[in-house]
Amino acid sequence: MLKILVCVKQVPDVNLVKIDPVTGSLIRDGVPAIMNPLDGSALEAAVRIKETYGGEITAITMGPDNAAAVLRECISVGASQAILCSDYAFKDADTLSTSYVIGKAAKMFGEYDLIICGKETLDGATGQMGSQLAERFGATMVSSTSLIMEVNEEMGTVIAERELEGGVEVLEAQMPALFTVEKTNYQPRIPNFKGWKFARTAPITKLTADTIEGLDRNKIGAPGSGTIVPRTYPPEKAEGGMILDEGSVEKNVAKVMEILADKGLV
């Protein structure tokens, strides 16, 4: 039976996030936490594989306790196991240490034929987790996957489309393989009521730094991170051009048309 691991992250809905203009820090108050949209596509890809070929989906995340919400979303559409890695010691982790923790935790529940992630997150958008998780699992790496076309369990291969700058690659990858998926063909489904109801009370396995087997404390959280963020600041506002003020919107539009005509653009 195919074993599929889906890696998800809870992120603030950045479209609603505001930045403190003075300190440059995030104002998260009242901003809803959602499943990273591309992780929704990863989940969708996993569910479709399960529907076509059978298999078992395990969902995993790292985050505060309330990140369990994104795992419940996974359960509501067909994940049968959910793992939450949550510990103050994981705080301020970059992708190097996060991938280490996820790898160690997931391996406690066996091996995986397919590992599926979103291509990048809405908040950090480094797009590095997939590649670094592939390293932790020793898996074949297929990034920017637009479609997983065929899974051949007997041969241990997967055929997938990969979006590149100049076109699309069709690759045959050996399992275990990790895919980071694009949204292209994977619009996440809405769970049905039964699934949603089941997920509300389904068990979630919570792991901490103490309960993840063989975890090296030097490799987690801030100490285990290769990168730090010494400071953030609001983007500089560009000088800008001219905001037209001809007295009315009609006149402003007329002015723009005049300017464009002068420049030979219309």
């Binding site: 950045v14 930045i19 440059g24 820090s25 950090g124 290769g226 990168t227 953030t232």
Partner: peptide, 16 residues
């Protein structure tokens, strides 16, 4: 740029 471009983040590799 981070958080959808709403802020700029300085990132360094301080030790490794």
């Amino acid at each position: 740029p981070a958080v959808g471009g709403k802020m700029m983040a300085v990132i360094t590799v301080p030790v490794l």
